[in-house]
Amino acid sequence: MTNQSESIAKKEVPVEQCEELLSLLKTRFEDNMHRHPELEWAKVQAKLDAKPEKLWSLHEMERTNGEPDVIGYDNEADSYMFCDCSAESPAGRRSVCYDPESLESRKKNKPAHSACGMAAEMGIELLDEAQYRALQQLENFDKKTSSWIKTPSDIRKLGGGLFCDFRFGTVFVYHNGVESYYAGRGFRGMLKV
């Protein structure tokens, strides 16, 4: 049996934790049917069973307080879409700048990580603006926090990064320098299974 550090290096979830994670995901799925009407957990479970490597990414989403849940099914790709559904931007992923380049270029008071770098390590993708807006159609998130979103390359080339939040009944998209980071800003990710 592998120990915890070997499991992390191999990106595997130990069997006991895997069972706990699947039970938690199933309960969350059943408790939040408004996020995925007409979808069945048994079919999601079958996809997860066929792609056990995806469980590691879901475990990382859960470990960093993202509360991942299914938010839809992509017919074209034949995949279920898991997204962070925590009420606020995941607490374990806040105080991060935008990407590895911005982290590297910051000379003083560097944050511990970047949103894009952390997402890549977790095997997930940052939401883009359309995905973030679609998520907000399911229920309202980020009423007190904000989340970095995938920034178009022309804006990023100029040193800008985009983030969103939900205030006054509206989704707002803002900009900051990519080197900036705040205690109330993290990022939401998506994983297709």
Rank of each mutant, 00 (worst) to 15 (best):
residue 2 T to Y: 13
residue 3 N to R: 05
residue 4 Q to R: 14
residue 4 Q to H: 15
residue 5 S to G: 00
residue 11 K to W: 07
residue 11 K to G: 08
residue 12 E to G: 02
residue 12 E to P: 00
residue 14 P to I: 13
residue 15 V to E: 14
residue 17 Q to D: 12
residue 18 C to T: 15
residue 20 E to P: 00
residue 20 E to L: 15
residue 20 E to Q: 15
residue 21 L to W: 01
residue 21 L to K: 01
residue 26 K to Y: 05
residue 27 T to K: 15
residue 28 R to N: 13
residue 29 F to L: 06
residue 32 N to H: 15
residue 33 M to Q: 13
residue 34 H to T: 10
residue 36 H to I: 05
residue 36 H to N: 10
residue 36 H to D: 02
residue 37 P to F: 09
residue 39 L to R: 02
residue 41 W to I: 08
residue 41 W to M: 05
residue 43 K to N: 09
residue 43 K to V: 10
residue 45 Q to N: 11
residue 48 L to R: 00
residue 48 L to V: 05
residue 48 L to Q: 01
residue 50 A to Q: 11
residue 51 K to L: 11
residue 51 K to C: 06
residue 56 W to K: 03
residue 57 S to G: 15
residue 58 L to C: 04
residue 59 H to P: 00
residue 60 E to V: 10
residue 61 M to G: 04
residue 61 M to L: 09
residue 62 E to D: 09
residue 63 R to A: 14
residue 64 T to D: 09
residue 68 P to H: 08
residue 69 D to I: 09
residue 70 V to L: 06
residue 70 V to D: 05
residue 70 V to W: 02
residue 72 G to R: 06
residue 75 N to W: 08
residue 75 N to R: 07
residue 77 A to F: 09
residue 79 S to G: 12
residue 80 Y to L: 05
residue 80 Y to N: 05
residue 81 M to Q: 13
residue 81 M to P: 01
residue 82 F to T: 02
residue 83 C to A: 15
residue 84 D to V: 05
residue 85 C to N: 08
residue 86 S to A: 15
residue 86 S to T: 10
residue 87 A to C: 03
residue 90 P to T: 03
residue 91 A to K: 08
residue 92 G to V: 04
residue 92 G to D: 02
residue 93 R to L: 12
residue 94 R to S: 04
residue 94 R to Y: 07
residue 95 S to T: 11
residue 103 L to A: 03
residue 104 E to Y: 07
residue 108 K to M: 15
residue 109 N to T: 11
residue 109 N to D: 14
residue 111 P to M: 10
residue 111 P to A: 15
residue 113 H to T: 10
residue 113 H to A: 14
residue 114 S to E: 03
residue 114 S to D: 04
residue 115 A to P: 00
residue 119 A to N: 04
residue 120 A to Q: 11
residue 123 G to L: 07
residue 125 E to F: 09
residue 125 E to W: 10
residue 126 L to Y: 07
residue 127 L to A: 03
residue 130 A to F: 02
residue 130 A to S: 11
residue 131 Q to Y: 01
residue 133 R to A: 09
residue 134 A to G: 06
residue 137 Q to F: 01
residue 139 E to G: 03
residue 145 T to E: 08
residue 146 S to F: 06
residue 146 S to I: 04
residue 146 S to P: 02
residue 148 W to K: 06
residue 150 K to L: 08
residue 154 D to V: 14
residue 155 I to Y: 12
residue 156 R to G: 07
residue 158 L to P: 01
residue 158 L to H: 12
residue 158 L to M: 14
residue 160 G to C: 10
residue 161 G to H: 00
residue 162 L to A: 08
residue 165 D to H: 09
residue 166 F to M: 00
residue 167 R to I: 08
residue 169 G to V: 05
residue 170 T to I: 03
residue 172 F to L: 05
residue 174 Y to T: 09
residue 175 H to F: 14
residue 178 V to N: 06
residue 179 E to R: 09
residue 179 E to Q: 13
residue 181 Y to E: 01
residue 181 Y to R: 02
residue 182 Y to C: 12
residue 183 A to P: 00
residue 185 R to A: 02
residue 186 G to D: 05
residue 187 F to R: 07
residue 188 R to D: 06
residue 189 G to Y: 04
residue 190 M to W: 00
residue 190 M to L: 06
residue 191 L to S: 02
residue 193 V to I: 15
residue 193 V to M: 11
